[in-house]
Every structure is written in structure tokens, then in C-alpha cells.
Write a protein that binds this DNA or RNA. Structure first.
Lengths: 346, 346
DNA sequence: CTGTTAGCGCCTTCAT
DNA sequence: ATGAAGGCGCTAACAG
């Protein structure tokens, strides 16, 4: 395979200047009124000699890298993996590549990664943030690198975000449980204090309130999106003298922990206890009993994130505040038991 | 936050030449016998003024980009997502970033992606290949960009690969089923003709042969690693007058399809039919019955892939042939029924 | 319609 | 122990 290494070489082969070659290759032939003949010769030669522009020379010159950064807390989490897939696809469509970074649920790593990506001159960053601190993010925004936040909403920070309507998702989930006769519903939550979690808890509470069910604070437990927290809190809920008949899991990892705890206690879903979890997964349908879930529009989140980011990049407006809220979808399967005709009580 | 934009600016601030600054920043202070005093001043100023070298200027000059490409068939598949996580982590440790590409199970996309990454001047590529064709890969190798293949072995191509010992994995899985009394065991396979699949099928066959069980070709079915194939082939196996008592699924997606088909037919695992699947997943333990799986050392695969690639990069030896084969692990749970004391027959 | 020139920020050779 | 100069490959400004 013949391969020419730069524009000069190519130009020499055709016998014209590098400038003209550059112009044709950048689609500026008409603008500079280059003859069709010359144009054609350039295009042919470029194809024949496998010419590809050196991206570094171009990046240096134009300060455009056609690269985006993506930071997620855990790429092995299918939720983020699906979003990453969508982001990669949409970016490629638009001529961008993505540098993938995994912050490993560490705020410190996240900070380093942000710097690293800026150093690599990405044109923008899509960030699924971790933890409670946000000052490193607002600091970073000062640099002028456009950022789009996904999965979360960062109050008080001027930055676009793409989120799911978590409030409505939780509301619908709990409404569903209530409609099946449940009144004592536990809620195992993730990291307290972040919008994602707060919104879901509020949805949970409002659903109860809408049906005049008293909110019991000891039924709202936990402080981490991980599996272990799901396990621990379930154990705690089960030890209550007046057990909940249903549990809302605020993440899919939490639901895994719940299932582990339940199974260790010889309890079956939905016969002994009902469950609805956030984040649908490919396997959700194949569990002991197919799980009712709150599905987030992962593909749409990725697509919107890329397009919003590209918009900020092209506007040069780093601080625009577009918040896009996407609708979740309650997928009803078989993890909530209908207990309407059963006497209440333990 | 003060930020200096290039080496020249920084040099001007200190009042020395850019050359000296560059030397200090590249750790060549001793080599050029630069005074400790000057060295210190440079380091301090660089930190104070947040100097980061422009990666494009450096890439242009050094032809080193500290970037690796990763191409996977489907990043939303937890198997590849886990490997990606490991690759990202290991790369970062070594000072490399990774550009993530999803070939969407398309050989054509894979070819394009290979070109794209070469155009982006990645120093090397980790590729989980798709499909049966390999000529685009051998063509690509001519370019001199180091490549490491994961998940598969490409016979006849001079390229390092990191794979799991699929033969042994399948062998152990089937030995396990046989030890529980199964003799009529179906095997739903993925894409025929690729090493990954062939090795697993051979392991399956040899396990049967070791126990003098006749190999029935109609029990070995399918030609795709996807969920639908798992479903279709299960339907076919179930329609056999002499049904298998157990099935080996050659991918986790296939096992999802199997579960769907089984559930539609009102069949339970392991009571009505037993199942072992390749690729352990976080949820495997929480299924209707916890699934026995053949787990691949995903973290190790990623780590080895990065280090092998880095070795080829530093050697400048594109065509070395290191094939690393890692041991799988059979995780025994509860999806294989013990039928030893039961009369054989349908 | 096409070419010449200069410079993006960096590192290395050569010079001192 | 430090600097000056040149060039990596590209494109935009300027010049015809």
C-alpha cells in the first residue's frame, strides 16, 4: 500500500503547491475558484497515495482536535456503558472521537481527569460527576473548556446538564406499588445530597403523600449507590418489627444487594416482598421474577449530551445553562405483588 | 487561576530561554547539567502558572501521542465494558489515554475505525475483532501501527493476542454437567469459524468424548453470539423429540435468549433444564436460579493487552507473535441439576 | 486561479 | 551551564 506522508509530498507528485492541495482537501475549492481539473487531480492523488492529514499539525494550527472527553464513574456499570456507546456513536457521526476516562467513583480522580483532558486539548467534556463536591468542577469551568454534565444536575453551577426526570420516575414507581395495595414501602437510596438522589426521594415521598400515606423516615435508608448498601439496608429494613411490603431501589446496584439479602433470608420476590428498581438492564427481564424497573433513556441522554456539547463548542459559549430533562419509563414486569385483597398487617 | 500558554511565555517570566525550560520539564536537567537553582525556578514557575505542554506541538515534533485506540464490538456488553475499564486504568498508569471506538459488530465499521485511529496517530491499537474476515486487519498491519488482538486468536496473522483458554473453559463446564449426570447436552454457539467459538466447541466435544458420550451434531446449533440466536436455537432444541437435559451457552447474550425461550415455554432452570453460560456477569448470581458460568479474567486481559501493546510500541516491533492464554474459572452456582439418581429418558 | 510565506508550540542540533 | 535556530505538517494571510 503506497502511502504519502504529507501534503508537500503529495503536492510535489502532482506538481502544484501545498496550499492548493490543502484547499481542495478542505473543500474550499470553490471558494478559491480552483479549476475542476486541478481539484480532480488532487482528489485522485490523495486517494491513490492514501493521504491522511497529520492531525497534530492540524490541531496545532487550528486549535481544533475533533476530540471529546468522557468521564464516567464506572464504565463497567451497564448504565454508563450504554450511555458511552451512544456518545461514541453520535460523536463519530459528527466527526469527533472520544477519549474515555473512568473516575472510579473518586472525586480526586475526577479532578485529575478533568485536567488531563484539558491537557489533551479535547474540545469539550461530557462528565458524569461523582460525590458531593462540585468546586473542582466550577474551578475547571474557568478554563473555558465546554462541559456538559449528565446523570446529575449541579445546582448553582452554570453548566448545561442532561438528566432524567428522576422525580417522576420515582413517583410513577411508587404510584405503581400503591396501586397494587402497598402502603408500607421502603426506599433504599444512594448518596444523599445529590440532585439525582434527592429528586428520587422527593418523588417517592410525594407519591405517598398523594395517597395520604404517612412518610416514615426509618423506611428511607442508605447513603450509597453500591451493592453493599443495598444489602445492608435491606437487612436493616427486614429487622424492623413492622416490615415494609415493598422496596424501591434507587439504583440497579442497590437492587442487586437487595436481592442478595432477600435470598439469604429465604425471601422471594414478589411473594414475600415487592421490588422496583431504577435503571433497566438487559437481564432485568430474566431474574427470579422479572423486575419492574424505571428505565432511563440512555441512548437519548448520550445523543443530547453530544449535541449540547457541540453546540457550546461552536457557540464558544462555555456557560450556557441548558438543562434538558428526559422522561423515564416504568417497565412493569413481575416484581410487585398485588396485595389488595389481603388483610393488611405483617 | 493563572495559566501560561506556552513554554516561551514561561521562559520570559523567569527570564531564561525556552530551551532550558523544555529541558528541565522533560527531566533532562542533569543530562544538560542545568543548575539546581535554575531547575527549581522552572519547576516552581510551571506549577505556579499552571503550565501544560501543548500536546499537539509535542506530538508533531516527537511523533508520540501517548494515546492508544480501543475497538470493541459493543461497549454496552458488560464483558467488553469490564475489559475497557481495565484497559483504561492500566493505560492511565502508564501515561496513556485511550480513544474508545465501538465497531457495532460490523466488520466494515471496524475497518473504518482502524483507519480513523491511525489517522489520529494513536501509538497502538487494542482490537476485539468482529466477524470472519481478517484481511482488513493484515492489510492494516502493513502500516506499522502496533496492534494487539483480544478475545480472539487470528490464525495466520502475525500479531500478538490475549485470549482466554476457551477450550478448557468449555471442557470444564461440560465435565461439570456430566458429573451431575447429564449426557444429552446441547451447545448453542456463536459465529462459526472464529477461534473463540471453535475452541469452545472443541472443549465441549472433547469433554463428551472423554466420557464416551456420542457427539450429536444436531445438538450443536447456532451461528451468532447474540440474544436472538440463543432464543431461536433453544426453540429448536426444545422441539427435538429427544430433548437435551442441559445446554451450554457460548456467550452471555446467548444465555439471555435461552432464558427467554425457556420462560416462554414454562420451563425452569435447573428443574426442567440445566444451563451453563460463558462470561460471568454481576447479575449472574441473582437470576431465577443463580447461574453457573465460565468466567474470563477480564481485568487480567485488559492489563496484559496494554502491557503487550506498550512492549511492541517500545520495541518498534509490530509483528511479534506473543500469544497469551489466560485461565478461565468455572463458577459453580445453581443452574445445573443433579440428575444422577433419576432414570434417564425424556 | 495559484503560489509564497509565516507561524502554531515543541524539542533537538549546534554553538558557545 | 545555557541559548539560538530550524523544522515537524498544516493552513491562513498576503500576493499576484
Amino acid at each position: 500500500m503506497v502511502q504519502v506522508k504529507n501534503i508537500k509530498e503529495l503536492a510535489a507528485i502532482i506538481g502544484i503547491s501545498a496550499t492548493t492541495v490543502s484547499r481542495v482537501l478542505n473543500g474550499k475549492a470553490t471558494k478559491y475558484r480552483i479549476s475542476d481539473n486541478t481539484s480532480k487531480k488532487v482528489l485522485d492523488a490523495a486517494a491513490r497515495f492514501n493521504y491522511y492529514p497529520n492531525i497534530f499539525a492540524r490541531g496545532l494550527r487550528l486549535e481544533k482536535t475533533e476530540t471529546l472527553g468522557l468521564i464516567v464513574p464506572d464504565i463497567a456499570n451497564p448504565f454508563f456503558a450504554s450511555i458511552a456507546k451512544s456518545i461514541e456513536f453520535e460523536s463519530r457521526l459528527k466527526g469527533y472521537s472520544i477519549i474515555l476516562c473512568d473516575s472510579m467513583d473518586s472525586c480526586q480522580t475526577e479532578t485529575i481527569l478533568l485536567q488531563l483532558l484539558a491537557g489533551r486539548k479535547v474540545e469539550g467534556i461530557i462528565l458524569a460527576p461523582v460525590g458531593l463536591r462540585t468546586d473542582h468542577i466550577s474551578d475547571f469551568l474557568e478554563k473555558g473548556v465546554p462541559v456538559v454534565i449528565i446523570d446529575r444536575y449541579l445546582p448553582g453551577i452554570q453548566v448545561p446538564s442532561i438528566i432524567t426526570d428522576n422525580y417522576t420516575g420515582a413517583l410513577q414507581a411508587v404510584e405503581h406499588m400503591i396501586s397494587k395495595g402497598h402502603r408500607k414501602i421502603g426506599c433504599i437510596q444512594g448518596l444523599n445530597g445529590i440532585s439525582l438522589n434527592t429528586d428520587r426521594v422527593n418523588g417517592y415521598k410525594d407519591a405517598l403523600m398523594n395517597h395520604n400515606i404517612r412518610i416514615e423516615e426509618n423506611l428511607i435508608a442508605g447513603n450509597d449507590f453500591g451493592e453493599q448498601n443495598g444489602y445492608d439496608q435491606t437487612m436493616k429494613l427486614l429487622s424492623l418489627r413492622d416490615r415494609p411490603t415493598a422496596i424501591l431501589a434507587l439504583s440497579n446496584l442497590i437492587s442487586l444487594g437487595i436481592m442478595r439479602a432477600l435470598s439469604e433470608n429465604g425471601l422471594a420476590i414478589p411473594d414475600d416482598i415487592s421490588l422496583v428498581a431504577f435503571d433497566d438492564q438487559p437481564y432485568s427481564a430474566y431474574l427470579a421474577s422479572p423486575m419492574t424497573t424505571v428505565d432511563q433513556p440512555k441512548e437519548e441522554i448520550g445523543k443530547r449530551a453530544v449535541n449540547t456539547l457541540l453546540d457550546s463548542i461552536h457557540d464558544g459559549d462555555t456557560k450556557r445553562q441548558t438543562n434538558i430533562m428526559l422522561k423515564p419509563r416504568l417497565i412493569v414486569r413481575n416484581s410487585v405483588k398485588d396485595i389488595r385483597d389481603i388483610k393488611m398487617g405483617s
